[in-house]
Computed example of a mutant assay.
Amino acid sequence: MSAKYVPPANFAPVEQHLYRSAAPRPINFPFLKLLDIKTIIWLNVEDPSDELLDFIDAHDINLEHLGLLTKKVKPWDPISDKVVQEALTILMNIQIYPVLICCSMGRHRTGAVIGCLRKLQGWSFASLVDEYQRFTGIAGERSNVELLVENFSLVPLKQLLKIKANSNEPVPQWFDLHSDLE
């Protein structure tokens, strides 16, 4: 009997060795093993399931639980700029890849982080909103996510990229280091 590989809901590659999805379930674990995931950026306010925590421990995966950065937040509250900033800063560390970014359904919180990454990469606002809306499905878009992405300040991230470039510290190649880093 051959193994079955089932990706998590809303799974998609974002860039080389960077993936997005809904919270993985046990049926998805063989698929994640194929990707050799080393880090999971968890954007939910709630803790991961016990099964996922066991999988993470068994496979020496680093869990970045960014949902804990926000106190007294309800699961349906929008993601904060602080959480997005932290997620993108973590993504600049080339040593943690391959990475999976996820939230409960892989839509809004994950979409906000990916949208801000795309903004940092110089994507047009229309293109990044189109990508975001492809993952919202029948749930529809949330205008507060689009507003967060539109108003998200790239200045601290560009400064960090400039520092890394000046110190020859490697970052994933798909970060646009040739853009205006001022």
Rank of each mutant, 00 (worst) to 15 (best):
G111H: 03
F125I: 13
S124F: 09
G122T: 09
I94R: 13
V99P: 03
V83K: 00
Q121L: 15
S124T: 15
G106V: 06
S80R: 08
P98D: 13
Y97E: 10
G106I: 03
Y97P: 05
L100T: 08
P78Q: 08
Q85L: 15
I94N: 12
Y97R: 07
M105R: 13
A87V: 02
K119V: 07
G122M: 08
K82I: 10
A126Y: 14
R109M: 00
C103M: 07
V113I: 08
V83D: 00
R107N: 04
I90Q: 09
W123P: 01
L128Q: 12
M92C: 10
K119L: 07
R118S: 05
A112Q: 02
C116Q: 01
M92Y: 09
N93K: 15
R107I: 09
I114R: 03
F125Y: 15
Q85V: 10
L117E: 02
C103D: 04
A126H: 14
D81K: 13
R118Y: 11
G122D: 10
Q95T: 15
D77M: 05
N93Q: 14
I94V: 15
I79T: 02
F125E: 15
I90F: 03
I101M: 07
G106A: 10
V83L: 09
S124V: 06
S104W: 13
T89K: 12
C102H: 15
A87R: 02
P78R: 04
A126S: 15
I90G: 04
D77R: 05
C116R: 01
W123Y: 15
V99G: 06
S127N: 15
I90Y: 06
S127R: 14
V83W: 00
I96G: 07
C116P: 02
L88G: 05
S80H: 07
K82E: 14
K82Y: 13
N93T: 11
I96T: 11
I114L: 06
I96C: 10
K82V: 12
L117I: 07
R109A: 00
M105L: 14
L91C: 12
S80Q: 10
A112H: 01
F125L: 14
A112N: 02
Q85D: 12
T110S: 06
Q95G: 13
